[in-house]
Design a protein around this nucleic acid. Structure first.
Lengths: 116, 116
DNA sequence: CTCGTACATCGACGCTTGTCAATTTATCTG
DNA sequence: CAGATAAATTGACAAGCGTCGATGTACGAG
């Protein structure tokens, strides 16, 4: 019963209590920190923004390497981190790998930070 | 002309475009990443949560050291990072330094992540 | 003025992270 | 099959980060 493909790390979604509503547990803090670390990088923020802006809201590595100004292995590395964190999904079609935002992933994170 | 005390790093508030609405600039990504890095740590997430839950929504270092399970210098270090990022404000009264959430700081960050 | 307390700062240490060049794996084409 | 292209993986390196112990600083009590 491998949930891994269906719910990569989106247990962030499962977690509900906003940070400031009730005291977070050490484990919860660890998990949320890991997710935030995945986003807390300039290259990865730009990747998220670029993929969202790309046509059909998806992009392959070759679309991203040159505008980002980083090497292909580095871009692949960042994309893997985002996939592992449940932010991106990966769809391999032929020789290309297409990445897109997991719907609701960023919103789930945002809801944990909000205080209102 | 030192803005530093008035606008620690809350230019995050000034920034408006959610990540996925328009393509973020390299500079914008850098700034947002710095802010997110300030939050993307288990100890600091717990500090945020603990301060928000504390009576009068403020706490001094001595309130936080023991429940966090970290040394006093380490806690001071984390608090400084949160203050520099504009998440916490610091108010020294007598021998004690009281920290509290900057109103709207976390919400500003959350709004940059949201996709809806 | 002296002592104790609360906090900040400094220096050092190990671990993690971002990046690259080189290599490997997978897939399509002829 | 051989060759070419897209992407993932590996190994290495410098830089950054979290933590601690020791020290410095500011403030209140006596």
């Amino acid at each position: 019963m491998s949930f891994t493909e269906l719910l990569p790390l989106t247990d962030v979604t499962a977690c509900c209590a906003p940070l400031t509503r009730e005291t977070i547990s050490a484990e919860g803090a660890d998990k949320l920190a890991r997710t935030l670390k995945a986003i807390a990088d300039p290259a990865r923020l730009r990747l998220i923004s670029m993929v969202a802006a790309h046509e059909d809201s998806e992009a392959c590595v070759c679309d991203l390497t040159e505008p980002l100004g980083l090497g292909q292995p580095t871009v692949s590395h960042h994309l893997k981190i985002l996939v592992d964190a449940g932010i991106f999904s990966r769809d391999k079609r032929g020789t290309w790998a297409y990445y897109r935002l997991v719907p609701g992933a960023l919103d789930s994170i945002a809801q944990l930070l909000v205080t209102v």
